[in-house]
Computed example of a mutant assay.
Amino acid sequence: MKKHLLFLLGTLLFFTVNAQAQFYVGASGGNSFINQSLNDINGNSFKVDDNTGSWKIYGGLGNKFLGVEGGYRSVGTASTVANDVSYETSITGWDVAAKGTIHIGPVFGFAKAGAFFGQYDNRYPEVSSMQKDTSFMWGLGAGVLLGDTFEIRMEWESLNLQGSNNISTLSLGTAIHFGGGKN
């Protein structure tokens, strides 16, 4: 899986660099929706189902239609109480994705798919555990390009981890474009 993903991202990078690629950096903030199954120290299963604030910083390289985007994010800290015991999970991680974009004047829509390299810090009373996981991620978004260099965008991303776990974010962000051809 990792070799196929690296090949796909390398191919996209090659084509975007050869087609007047444009580099961009940005940041966004919004809300995350966390529905995650955890096990306590005794092996008892419970659910964390919570909404919390999230943020990310990202950058990408691409032309008018194809590109590669990656970033670092905090999905936030979600908590629940089960049997009068408080449980909490904090999720952060890196992501990389292939991105396709369609422009209609200054308005654009995009879709992306790639990998999320997550780190989960789960805390129970007097116990803490760290877990790392790589999962498929995908997203959809739309925005507007103001001039040639500044964009505002809204996006939804799914960071599904494992079978019954559903983690997604909805965010509003901005980015600044550098170099390359005109979008």
Rank of each mutant, 00 (worst) to 15 (best):
D133K: 06
M137P: 01
F150R: 00
I167Y: 11
F178L: 15
D133R: 09
S171P: 02
L66C: 06
F110C: 01
F14M: 13
G30D: 00
S129N: 07
T52H: 10
V48A: 00
K3C: 04
G100T: 08
V25L: 11
D40N: 11
G10E: 04
K132A: 07
G179W: 12
I176C: 04
N160Y: 12
F46R: 02
A142T: 15
S164R: 09
S79Y: 15
L145M: 15
F150A: 00
M130C: 00
F23E: 04
I91Q: 06
S128P: 01
W138A: 08
N31S: 14
S28I: 05
A19I: 03
G173W: 14
S158D: 14
Q22E: 08
A19H: 06
F46Q: 05
T80D: 14
R153N: 14
W156K: 14
G60N: 06
I104T: 11
A142P: 14
N63Y: 05
L8P: 10
K47H: 07
D148T: 09
Q119M: 06
G30V: 10
P125T: 05
A27S: 12
I91A: 04
M137G: 00
D49S: 11
A21K: 05
P106I: 00
N165F: 04
R123N: 08
L61T: 08
R123A: 07
S86G: 10
G60P: 11
L66V: 11
S90L: 09
F46G: 06
F33K: 09
N35Y: 05
S45M: 02
N35R: 12
G173V: 12
V48E: 02
G114L: 01
I34Q: 11
A82W: 13
L66F: 15
G141H: 02
V81I: 13
D40F: 03
A142M: 12
D49T: 06
A27W: 02
Q22W: 05
K47I: 06
G93T: 03
K3H: 12
S79P: 14
K56A: 13
F117E: 08
M137D: 01
I57G: 15
L12A: 07
G76R: 07
F46Y: 06
V17A: 15
Y58K: 08
T80R: 05
V25F: 05
A115C: 03
S168F: 13
A175E: 14
M1H: 11
T89F: 02
S128C: 02
T134E: 03
F23L: 11
G141P: 07
K132Q: 10
F117D: 09
G93F: 07
D121S: 06
K64G: 03
I176M: 15
F136I: 08
G100C: 00
G70P: 10
G173M: 14
D95R: 11
D121W: 05
Q22F: 03
F117S: 08
V48K: 05
T101S: 04
T169Q: 15
Y124I: 01
A21H: 04
L159R: 12
G100R: 01
V17S: 08
A78W: 13
P106W: 00
L159F: 15
D148M: 02
F15R: 05
Y24F: 12
W156S: 13
S37I: 06
N42F: 10
D40T: 05
G173C: 14
V144W: 00
I57K: 07
G62Q: 11
Y24V: 03
T52V: 10
L61N: 07
G76D: 14
L61A: 11
I91H: 06
N183Y: 13
